[in-house]
Amino acid sequence: MPRNADNERHWHAIAQRYDVEPGPINLENGYFGRMSRAVQAHYLEHISFINRSNSVHVRQCFEQGENVEIRRELAGLIDVDPESVAFTRNATEALQSLIRNYNRLQPGDQVLISDLEYDTVKGAMRWLAGSRGVEVIEVSHNHPASFDSLVQTYHDAFVKYPRLKLMALTHVTHRTGLVMPVAAIAKAAREQHIDVILDGAHALGQFEFNLAELGIQFAGFNLHKWMGAPLTLGFLYIAPERLADIDPDMGESHYPATDVRARTSYSTPNFPALMTLPLVFEEHRQLGGAAAKGARVNYLRDLWVSQVRPLPGIEVLTSDDPRLYCGITAFKFIGRDQQVMVDRLLKEYDVFTTTRSGAAFGTCIRVTPGLVTSAADINVLVNAITELNKD
């Protein structure tokens, strides 16, 4: 176990950097993350300043240099060329821009999604059927999933559907936290000349990765989940050598066609949020980066899963293969209405979780600890599940 992952005193001190509203134990930290108190204060200062200075600072300073440095820092975070990233409001906007503007499809081509993709990604890929005349292929993954079964599902699809040209792939599935074997799948896709658009919404900040080593050339990310940035911040990535394969967004002309920033809509962004990012990145590094954050939430995940998985009335839907999970994990009360059980967890035990649906295995309950979650909080969850399971 990485150093400090199980050190409650260490993580209690870190938790004190965050303001937490009194109320239920929040185990639904997958929606969006908290800003630290320092980041929040910095953000509020920027809001006040931009409100006072208005366009004077934005036109003279932010657009003339500050944004370039912030973009450079972002690129350094994932070790890519600054010319390969462009800010968006979130991962969804980034992924929709990449899918909408991918220009290598012809009528009759096929595109691929799985049951585990985010709904807006599925929707965007299905939109291609009407706008480009392509056929959408959807595969369902075997459950329970293994590393080999996940890769094999894609191998089989690539053989069965020889007209495949583009596929969506989710790094960390939002329903169960399953971590897909991206490098192996992308390698198999590349051998069949299939391009991959990666949904990295939940990956950034939970674990370390290298896009070049993964073989990924198109991706979208969030900064407001595991990085602790203000809401309204995400970004897209396009490998520089593939820029021409993504058209400027709906004739976007604020940037030249040679600029990656032309691949998403130009608008008045949340300047104060963007100006807060240098502090967000600094705090991320001070905490030990994704390695430390990921180790902590994985430890908390293992605490409850190890005690709940053996229960006969409970099905944990996420693998224990360390290659395939992160802090997010989902489970079911077998034969029960999952929404009813989520409501009971909240009403009877003051534990806040959420249901997720849309996968082949049906509705599940997602549990997502965060940096303010303690081992004591996890013990409350375990006790709640154990008692409800006997009911």
Rank of each mutant, 00 (worst) to 15 (best):
T368F: 01
V121A: 05
T386Y: 01
G205L: 04
Q16R: 15
Y118K: 13
V58H: 02
S131I: 12
A201P: 09
N142D: 11
L317A: 08
E73K: 15
Q152E: 04
R52A: 13
R296W: 00
A359W: 00
R59G: 10
N26P: 08
L311Q: 08
M250D: 14
T153W: 00
K390C: 05
N29F: 00
G76K: 09
L388R: 07
I137W: 10
L279K: 13
L371W: 01
G358A: 07
S265K: 15
D377Q: 01
R175K: 09
V136G: 05
A189I: 15
V159W: 10
S253Q: 15
A359N: 05
D156K: 11
R356E: 00
R263G: 03
Q40T: 10
G358F: 02
D81S: 13
S53W: 02
V134C: 03
N54P: 03
S357A: 14
A201D: 08
N7E: 02
T153G: 13
L274K: 10
F62M: 04
L198W: 07
Q96W: 02
S97D: 03
H42S: 10
A168T: 12
R163W: 11
D337C: 08
P278V: 07
D148S: 12
T232I: 09
V280S: 05
L345M: 05
D6M: 14
D195H: 04
N7V: 14
R100T: 13
N222S: 15
L303V: 13
G288L: 06
G335Y: 09
D115N: 00
L164P: 05
A184K: 05
H12R: 14
G23Q: 02
A295I: 10
E208C: 13
G313L: 14
K390M: 07
R366H: 00
Y255R: 11
Y102N: 03
A15W: 04
L346T: 02
I137T: 03
N389T: 15
Y349I: 09
S374D: 00
V182N: 02
P22S: 06
Q192E: 10
Q96A: 13
L277T: 12
S53P: 03
V342Y: 01
H155T: 14
H224M: 10
F158T: 15
Y102T: 03
R59W: 09
A203S: 10
M35N: 03
V136D: 10
R17Y: 10
H224T: 09
T92M: 15
P269H: 08
P162Y: 00
N90L: 12
I50G: 03
Q217G: 14
H284E: 01
V316R: 04
E315L: 15
R296P: 02
C326D: 06
L236T: 14
Y255G: 07
R72F: 06
A189T: 11
M250C: 14
L74R: 09
N4Q: 13
Y299I: 07
G108N: 02
M275H: 01
Y349R: 11
I385T: 05
V58R: 03
G205W: 00
S149T: 13
I216S: 07
E21W: 01
H174P: 07
Q307F: 05
Q96P: 12
S84F: 08
N7Q: 11
S253R: 15
A292E: 06
H155K: 15
R309L: 11
T170Q: 06
G358K: 03
G288C: 04
D115A: 02
V58N: 02
H57T: 08
D247E: 13
Y154E: 11
T363L: 01
